[in-house]
């Protein structure tokens, strides 16, 4: 049901854009107003969400400790999986952001020959990594629509991505890989019973939406071509704040653009915020130094404590007189 609803919403969105452009000629709405609005919602929503997170106290010191903690000098500690200092935390965060370290540790619990076994499962890690990287490259490639002259690194990226040199327009690998990866992520949700059981509309919707974006982009690039020069007129108009809507851009472009706008506007209110959230995740960004420094819960009631030093100060004479050892004479 959740799956079906999300699917229908995405199809409906595509139909809205198509009908809006084909039947009602709302090119200016879909080409200019909605993109600006979506971008504003994205930026303001994103910042707002992060500030909200920043205002929430972290009551406990809860770094994940995935390796040997720093201890006696002759015990080798795991500096990246269980860091004690800022440098280590930065390293761990980099591993997390660039290589999805924690997902790499994903384990599957099962029974083999009557014994409990934990085996590593890397498929989600691999699928996720490929998905994110191809999405990133596709995004950077799109800079050719927002820069004039196009910076050389975008050209080089195109050349690398078009390495196969097949077809005309040239086949760009990452677009297809992105589509494949997002379909894999969907199939995994749909067919693994445990994952399916915990999947909600908020899980399916982004997947279908991204599938829609990738699919409409691929259709536009390879099949139902549009006049790219006019498209760039439109996108450059947006970023130079002198919006224009050239005549004769195919509807498929407006479908593609509208789905992207929905994705951007939806971003701050959805699980997609893990893009900013990963940096604010206490299990990742706290060093494991709870034995070195005391973490104080910011909302703690101001409890009166009586430390050992104060205790000894108070009772030193009495302690000495009954022969108890004291730290200071």
């Amino acid at each position: 049901m959740e799956m079906f609803v999300s699917f229908c919403i995405v199809v409906l969105l595509a139909v809205i854009a198509f009908a809006g452009v084909e039947l009602v000629n709302l090119q200016f709405l879909f080409g200019v107003i909605i993109p600006y609005a979506a971008f504003a919602v994205f930026v303001i929503g994103f910042i707002n969400r992060v500030i909200q997170w920043g205002r929430s106290p972290v009551p406990f010191h809860i770094p994940t400790t995935c390796g040997q903690q720093k201890s006696l000098p002759w015990i080798k500690d795991s500096k990246l999986d269980n860091p004690t200092g800022t440098l280590g935390v930065i390293g761990r965060m980099a591993l997390e952001v660039f290589f999805f370290r924690s997902l790499f540790r994903n384990l599957k619990t099962g029974i083999q020959n009557g014994e409990l076994k934990y085996t590593g499962t890397k498929w989600l890690w691999l699928g996720g990594l490929i998905f994110h990287y191809s999405f990133f490259i596709v995004l950077v490639r799109h800079l050719r629509f927002f820069t004039d002259p196009v910076p050389p690194f975008v050209n080089y990226l195109d050349i690398l991505d078009g390495y196969l040199k097949t077809g005309s327009p040239n086949l760009l690998i990452t677009g297809w890989v992105l589509l494949g990866a997002v379909i894999y992520l969907f199939l995994r949700r749909a067919f693994i019973p445990g994952v399916r059981y915990i999947s909600l509309t908020a899980d399916y919707f982004p997947l279908f939406l991204i599938t829609g974006v990738a699919l409409s982009g691929i259709i536009m690039r390879y099949y139902i071509k549009v006049d790219i020069v006019s498209v760039k007129q439109l996108t450059m108009g947006l970023v130079t704040f002198s919006p224009v809507v050239p005549q004769g851009i195919g509807s498929i472009f407006f479908i593609h653009l509208f789905l992207i706008c929905v994705l951007f506007a939806y971003f701050p209110f959805s699980k997609l915020m893990h893009m900013g959230g990963v940096f604010l995740s206490p299990t990742r960004n706290l060093p494991n130094n709870s034995r070195i420094r005391r973490h104080i819960n910011p909302w703690n009631y101001d409890v009166k404590v009586h430390t050992y030093e104060e205790y000894e100060e108070e009772f030193r004479d009495k302690m000495k007189s009954v022969g108890l050892p004291v730290e200071k004479e």
Partner: peptide
């Protein structure tokens, strides 16, 4: 974050389309 997402805008300041 802002510097990255607004790159298309400020990199085109003063340019005509």
């Amino acid at each position: 974050f802002l510097a990255i997402v607004t790159f298309p805008f400020y990199s085109n300041i003063g340019k005509a389309n």
